[in-house]
Amino acid sequence: MQTITKNNQSAERPLGTGVKGTSVIKSEGTMEQNVFEINDLNLWYGNDQALYGIDMKVPQNKVTAIIGPSGCGKSTYLKTLNRMVEMVPTVKTSGSIKYKGEDIFSNKYGVEDLRTKVGMVFQKPNPFPKSIYDNVAYGPRVHGVKKKAVLDQVVEKSLKDAAIWDEVKDRLNENAFGLSGGQQQRICIARALAIEPDVILMDEPTSALDPISTLKVEELVQELKKKYSIIIVTHNMQQAARISDKTAFFLNGELIEFDDTDKLFSNPSDKRTEDYISGRFG
């Protein structure tokens, strides 16, 4: 499977998009809205192309999982959605990404505005070396909220939404580094929730966590999708199957298949998807 050249894959792409197309029609049929519409997205690191002609429509208030073997471009793709990928100076993109109808690459649309709407949780818990309170209050403060009473309210609500309030409410002024890895990750989720984004991007958020912490984060994701649209990259297929509504399978920088999670895992349309989910490679 992996010996297939890039050109061959490009040639096969219409199959993948075709499958995805039907699912979109179904989504539109049920009057669901999309937060992201990605059209023919290509991405290069310097001269190396990492993403090939991605087309995808990400539904609102759903959990969308992105799976695929390591190096398939799933993390790159996720970071393109809030333009974090541009932290690498040599990155070039082509194609369009529309967030609620607005082109995120357009000059009129500020990257800070985009990231205010599209929050992110990272692979490794990365709290600031500050107190728990200051971690969560960071976003609102950056965006100009200074009133203590408002901040208190936002911090409490965010920590509650991230299901960690009970564990930390008595030590909000302690350094976040003192918490366990799982707690730190939920603090990072609370930090992302504090500015109430529409979309939360999660980049393998449980890969550095123990099974119990992982379970807590998974439960949390289920809870959060009532309010937020979540896109989660995971290397763990069971996790994708457990928590997502839709799943996209990436391989070598290409979107192979994108469908309802149930459908994709029980009856994949593409042979490569089937090989991957049945554990034949990756």
């Binding site: 205010t116 965006h143 609500k157």
Partner: peptide, 25 residues
């Protein structure tokens, strides 16, 4: 519409927050 679930008081805060940011832009 997607904010239907949100706490009303906080909802106001978020609006204020965004407004604030636009003004300070």
């Amino acid at each position: 519409m997607e904010k239907a679930f949100k706490d009303e008081t906080i909802d106001l805060d978020v609006q204020a927050l965004i407004d604030n940011k636009r003004k300070k832009k």
